[in-house]
Design a protein around this nucleic acid. Structure first.
Lengths: 280, 280
DNA sequence: TGGCCTGAAGCATAAATTATTGACCGTCGT
DNA sequence: ACGACGGTCAATAATTTATGCTTCAGGCCA
């Protein structure tokens, strides 16, 4: 994976100094060629060892390895940038293209973050649950709604609430093995923490969908999906976050469809029924 | 110039030892990443200083500089090599990747379908409207909800209903110049056709978001957004459709943000307020 | 509150890598 | 033959990178 994408995806969980290093590299990747680890440290007013440790944490053999790797990426991107001037219309509908590019980056980072195992575990938890409870507040509620609809198309009982009070009441009725899916971008909402904790105590499986940071809600998760989505403009960042969550859920959905013949059949049947309701 | 080309061009004028270095690098460029100047010297049975002098003669600042430069070249050539055969990936955690690939295709097609003019026209209609009404049924309702939230963050009055009856009642109160956004994948729902037609009669502007087909709802549109999204599996097609609609709406949203300073300011303010509600 | 733990950051220093120096050697031209 | 020259190498200087240890701040529990 591109070191820049990797850096961006980890950025949220970094300490202050590390984040400064990350930002510097992301913004000045092309200057890196002329920087030794010591110079980079000086430029940021930090110690050289912090730079080296930063690179090692990211999984590189050391500073030169990172540097080499960034060099490769720059070369690649410059190459494709100049190789594809044909597919580029003026700067008209550039806006949509740029936005999509951002989404694609976030998607890749997120896909790598949530490996095959995580997805498998999640599918199992959902498939095994008697009932699946879903909750999300604000924009997160949209994901809860959408995913609940999908689950019910598959014949999985899905219970969604946007209201924490009602959800708390519902959750009291849960059985061991049921699953709770909590959508919360920042993972800080106290009410959601309480519900998740209570659900755990009832021996339910807690699934969380949050940003790739350490946060109170995620700490309670049996399966914690992490989303990497970063942009300078906060409102763009929010769009990217949502797109990435959606992709993650879509992948889970397809996974569920294609790993169980019975469920797949039920889905096709349901879609047919919906068609028939609309058509004649 | 590529360091490899430079080496080859100078090769004839080199001494025996230098030529051996040159040949080694030309043949094993991809291994260079893991070689220090000393290791390279050992591999050839020559002294490390010869290696360094070699690099300097060629005009590099030193051995690491040459190494970095070769790395760039390799990356570039590998990139164009793998980019040419087509965007094929090995079948690793392919499910998510494949799905994303489909989405990307649909996105591009859709972007080309809804040119800059369409987007501009749409932005104008939304910006000029006193009130914006939004409606969508089933999964389309999610888009209506999401977009309504966004519009209100921008200070645009948005009224959404998932219930056709209530919406019909609301629409009766509309003013000329107001806008109605209808989300309907297939564009066939009779109730939505009626509402759109009625809205037009009241001199409102009708905006539709549908598949790229000719359908009754779209026929009534002042601005008709078209979405291209196809897949063999109907349930995958639905995912792709939704992703693409989302991207279209996101683009419109960013467009609105960035073409009006006042609205932009209001948005940032609102986001801050939301943050403050959650944080302390 | 105070003690304890954890993790982050820096300092000092070891290790490694790279660059330069100077000595040696063979070749070539005079 | 002899000196000039280019090329090579070993030794070593200089630079760069990696690591061990210390300190300090924040979280947590009694």
């Amino acid at each position: 994976m591109s070191p820049l994408v990797k850096i961006r995806s980890e950025r949220d969980r970094m300490s202050a100094v590390e984040r400064r290093i990350a930002d510097f590299i992301l913004e000045n990747a092309h200057l890196l060629r002329d920087y030794s680890s010591q110079q980079l440290a000086n430029a940021l007013g930090i110690s050289q060892s912090s730079v080296v440790k930063f690179t090692q944490k990211l999984g590189f053999r050391g500073y030169p390895d990172l540097k080499y790797s960034v060099g490769e990426t720059i070369a690649r991107s410059e190459d494709t940038a100049t190789a594809a001037p044909s597919g580029e219309r003026p700067e008209d509908d550039l806006l949509g293209a740029m936005l999509w590019e951002r989404k694609a980056q976030a998607e890749e980072a997120t896909r790598l973050l949530n490996g095959r195992d995580t997805m498998q575990e999640l599918s199992n938890a959902l498939a095994a649950a008697g009932k699946v409870y879903l909750i999300g507040l604000g924009e997160d509620d949209l994901h809860a709604r959408g995913f609940a609809m999908r689950l019910s198309l598959l014949g999985i009982t899905a219970i969604r609430h946007a209201d924490v009070g009602r959800m708390a009441a519902q959750v009291a009725l849960c059985q061991p093995g049921d699953a709770l899916v909590v959508f919360t971008e920042h993972g800080k909402h106290p009410a959601l923490v309480k519900i998740a904790r209570y659900f755990r105590e009832q021996r339910g499986r807690v699934i969380t969908v949050t940003r790739h940071t350490s946060n109170p809600v995620r700490a309670l998760a049996d399966v914690g999906l992490a989303v990497a989505a970063y942009d300078d403009a906060s409102y763009v960042q929010s769009l990217i976050y949502q797109s990435t969550v959606q992709q993650l859920l879509d992948t889970v959905f397809v996974h569920l469809c294609e790993h169980d013949e019975a469920r797949h059949a039920r889905l096709v049947q349901n879609l047919d029924r919906i068609q028939q309701m609309l058509e004649p």
